[in-house]
């Protein structure tokens, strides 16, 4: 992965643990936006995409 200076602030609220993974609510603090996530994979991808936007 190329070096980058992606930074950001998130609040992860894990509300359930079903299907061998986590579900809950992710808050992107920098933009004051909230989204629900259904798995850790979805959580990671949402954060990664948001960080790419922060980098711009």
């Amino acid at each position: 992965m190329s070096e980058s200076k992606k930074t950001g602030t998130f609040i992860v609220n894990i509300m359930r643990q079903d299907n061998a993974t986590w579900q809950g609510e992710l808050t992107w603090a920098d933009k004051n936006q909230k989204k629900n996530f259904r798995s850790t994979l979805e959580l990671i991808k949402m954060m990664d995409e948001a960080l790419s936007d922060n980098e711009k």
Binding site: D18, N19, A20, T21, W22, F37, R38, S39, T40, L41, E42
Partner: peptide, 24 residues
């Protein structure tokens, strides 16, 4: 469930496991 399900094999030890999520 917005995740992955399948099998993983640890080749060196010849162990196969099933996983229900990417986290698992």
């Amino acid at each position: 469930n917005a995740s992955w399900q399948g099998d993983v094999v640890w080749v060196e030890r010849e162990i196969k496991k099933t996983f229900r999520s990417a986290m698992e």
